[in-house]
């Protein structure tokens, strides 16, 4: 029986980058979760910002839905810059 809550931890490594999931910690409350995450995941100055969220509150997509959720994006090539062929004279765009 876990008396402390499981929290997922997200670290932003430097300014400008997104928070990235790094793992989890156990804690009794939110403040402790931030502190425990700091001790565990930023001992070597890996981060400038932390998010913690109770694992139970994460809503995840199911692997069974992988096709309906992600496959449709595969054929929308026009969303990608490389789809558009421009003459060399245009240079870098």
């Amino acid at each position: 029986m876990s008396v402390w809550t499981l929290y997922e931890v997200f670290v932003r490594s430097k300014h400008g980058l997104n928070h990235k999931h790094v793992g989890s910690v156990h804690a009794a409350d939110d403040a402790m979760a931030i502190e425990n995450a700091r001790e565990l995941y930023t001992r070597r100055s890996e981060g400038v910002s932390l998010w913690v969220v109770p694992s139970a509150l994460i809503v995840a997509s199911s692997p069974d839905e992988k096709d309906p959720l992600f496959d449709p994006a595969d054929d929308k090539v026009y969303r990608h810059a490389s789809f558009y062929e421009l003459p060399d004279e245009v240079g870098h765009m």
Partner: peptide
């Protein structure tokens, strides 16, 4: 130890157990 327990918990196992 904690990184590993954390990886283990993704399998549905409980750390305290």
């Amino acid at each position: 130890g904690l990184y590993l327990y954390s990886a283990m918990e993704t399998l549905g196992a409980d750390r305290d157990e």
